[in-house]
Amino acid sequence: MRPAVIIAVFTLVWLAVSGSFTIPNLVLGIAAAALSLLLVRGHIQPDGRRLRPLKALSLLALFLRELALSAWKVAVLVVRPKMDLKPGIFAFPLTVDRDFEITLLANLITLTPGTLSVDVSEDRKTLYVHALDCSDPAGARRDIANGFEKKILEAFR
């Protein structure tokens, strides 16, 4: 993302948190965003990544649906008198390779039903995912690859 886009996003967050939509507050927000970006400028590299707003929105919708579903599934699992758990950690081969995309994918996986990302291998090719029901790891891998990973690739490539 370009610095200008990041500053715009930061300013929006500032407006939402401070809760006053006035011109002086807007200026203050832009100043704060620019200052905070200046402080971490060594750690972010601007690349020619494009963001497709519509695809990103569809990713957000999918995410919210999965979040609600996952909370519901955990809730149902917990109240069952006899929990049938087959927990385990399986390796998921990553197609996305940029740090930002891996982070996003790991976060999305954590908030989907029954899966929680534990670690990324040092060569950034494998994501280790803990699953509540690990009886079918191949199916779980396919679900992630065809669901979130595909959406992320569509939204940010």
Partner: peptide
């Protein structure tokens, strides 16, 4: 109720956040 720290994390991070 859940048996180990990893499965407990599922409950805490999903249901707790929501």
């Amino acid at each position: 109720r859940l048996p180990d720290v990893y499965t407990r994390m599922h409950a805490a991070s999903k249901a707790g956040t929501v």
